[in-house]
Structures are given as structure tokens and as C-alpha cells.
Design a binder for these strands. Structure first.
Length: 271
DNA sequence: GACCCGATTGTCT
DNA sequence: GACAATCGGGTCA
């Protein structure tokens, strides 16, 4: 497949990264905090390489809890790190997620307890990636959570590092003939956009986010966002009946990298 | 096999 | 806001 070939090429080469952190960040998240002695039970040391990597304990919680934990409901937004074949690291903090609860959830691929080769990773241990192809051309990335067939969809990232590489990956992989330069906020503001920006494809399916060498999660270092998380209905699941109405999408209020803003939900969850 | 649908995105009007 | 793109996976005969 052409797209797969491009991803393979991205693994091999990436441009020199000299980009800075987006300037609009401070406007809504306030000053950065340093980690200092801040540690949680989820914080683990990996002497091999990733000192701030989150371990498997972090992922071992129910889907709703994990979906909120990615956004830093109780501390700060977590950072997804992708290391390409040439050593380039792409970083972005998670600003939007959706929880899929498993067999009971009519919107989940595991509804009714369906277990197929495609969604097998939904039933694997918490922290396992579930990557699938949608509409024949896009990938979506989930992280399995506690609970059989339950997982969390990563919908949007706020890019923190490697923006020029992300821009190149997005421009190369996306559809359309007009090759205008993408704005920062167009890089990772959607489940498939972030997969393109981080060069994530089906080969990541069933990998363990707690152990993988090419991608991991780090404890974020921005200020806590406990009061800024909005709970809204999930996107693109109109046929899921009453489950389509449940507030299982979570995002950081006011964050410009969120894919879809729900003003009604924001009024219902006034900070 | 045949057929239908989709946890999306980008373009056009 | 409408709609096309594009194909793997699920379902059914």
C-alpha cells in the first residue's frame, strides 16, 4: 500500500528539527512547572532509556478513569512520545480522549463481546495499543484499559516537539492535491491526524505502550488541569443509540488543539 | 462470495 | 453543511 510505504520511509528519514514550542500555549495553560520531586505511584524509572516513562500500572484502571488520567485530571496532561527510526522524537501532550467501555457499550468495536482478529488488542492487557484502519485510508489509535474489551481512543494531541517532522508526515500522508503548509493546530487535532503526524500505522497494533521502544507515555510537566476537563458525547457514533448520548469524550477546555468543541457540554461542566 | 458500513478527513459550495 | 474518497472487516446467504 502506498501509505504504508510512505510510513516506512518516514521511519528511515526525517528532517532536522529546529522547531519551537507553539507560542499560543502559555495563553491558556499558564506557566510551566518543573517536575522536581513530584512523583506518583505510576512514575517509574527505566534505566535503559526513558526516565520519565509511565509504567503498566498507569494503564491498569477503568476506561473512563484512564481517559481522564491521560488528560491529567488529577495531575497534569501526559505526554505521548514517538521515536522514529532515525532517533527523531516527536512529542505531544494528550488533550482529548474517548472511553469505550467494552461489551455493554454499543459504540465499541467490542460490543456484545465481539472478539475478532481486528479488535483482539482491545482484550489484551491494559496499555496494549489497538490500531485499526477506518474508511479505508485512516488509522485510529486506542490504548486498552482495565476491563475486557475496554479502551481509550486518543483523539488529539498538543504538539510539543518535532512539529516540522509532523508537518512533513501529515503533508505526505494526507489526501488532497493542494499541498499548502499545515498550521500547527492542524497537525494532531483528530484521531487520524495524530496517527499521521506520529507515523503510526497498523504495525503498532498489539504493542505494549509500557514497553515499546518506538512509542511511550511520559508524565507531563504542565500545570494541573483538574478543573478544565470537559465531558462531552463521543464523535461519529450516531448509530449507537443511547450510548451515543453518554458523556464519554473528554477534553481540556479552551485548548486549541481539541478536534471538536462542544459548547453545550462546556456549559454543563462549568468550572 | 457479495454487500454494507465505518470511533475520519479534506474540499467545495 | 454536504459530500466524496477508499478498502478492510463484519455479516449473511
Amino acid at each position: 500500500m502506498r501509505q504504508k510505504k510512505k510510513l516506512a520511509e518516514a521511519e528511515q528519514q526525517s528532517p532536522t528539527d529546529t522547531d519551537q514550542m507553539p507560542s499560543s500555549k502559555k495563553a491558556y495553560l499558564g506557566p510551566r512547572l518543573t517536575l522536581g520531586s513530584q512523583r506518583s505511584i505510576y512514575f517509574c524509572q527505566n534505566p535503559k532509556d526513558h526516565s520519565a516513562r509511565l509504567g503498566s500500572e498507569f494503564f491498569d484502571q477503568p476506561a473512563v478513569s484512564l481517559a481522564r488520567a491521560f488528560l491529567g485530571q488529577t495531575d497534569c496532561p501526559q505526554v505521548l512520545v514517538r521515536r522514529l527510526g532515525d532517533g527523531t522524537e516527536l512529542r505531544g501532550c494528550i488533550v482529548e480522549t474517548e472511553a469505550y467501555l467494552g461489551p455493554e457499550d454499543e459504540a465499541a468495536h467490542s460490543r456484545g463481546g465481539r472478539q475478532t482478529p481486528r479488535n483482539r488488542s482491545m482484550f489484551m492487557k491494559p496499555g496494549t495499543l489497538y490500531v485499526y484502519l477506518i474508511y479505508g485510508m485512516y488509522f485510529c489509535m486506542n490504548v486498552s484499559s482495565q476491563g475486557d474489551g475496554a479502551c481509550v481512543l486518543l483523539r488529539a494531541l498538543e504538539p510539543l516537539g518535532g512539529l516540522e517532522t509532523m508537518r512533513q508526515l501529515r503533508s505526505t500522508l494526507r489526501k488532497g492535491t493542494i499541498n499548502r503548509a499545515l498550521k500547527d493546530r492542524e497537525l494532531c487535532s483528530g484521531p487520524s491526524k495524530l496517527c499521521q503526524a506520529l507515523a503510526i500505522d497498523k504495525s503498532f497494533d498489539q504493542r505494549d505502550l509500557a514497553e515499546d521502544e518506538a512509542m511511550w507515555l511520559e508524565r507531563g510537566s504542565l500545570e494541573p488541569s483538574a478543573l478544565a476537563v470537559v465531558a462531552a458525547t463521543r464523535i461519529g457514533i450516531g448509530r449507537a443509540g443511547e450510548w451515543a448520548q453518554k458523556p464519554l469524550r473528554f477534553y481540556i477546555r479552551g485548548n486549541p488543539w481539541v478536534s471538536v468543541v462542544d459548547k453545550t457540554a462546556e456549559q454543563d461542566t462549568q468550572a
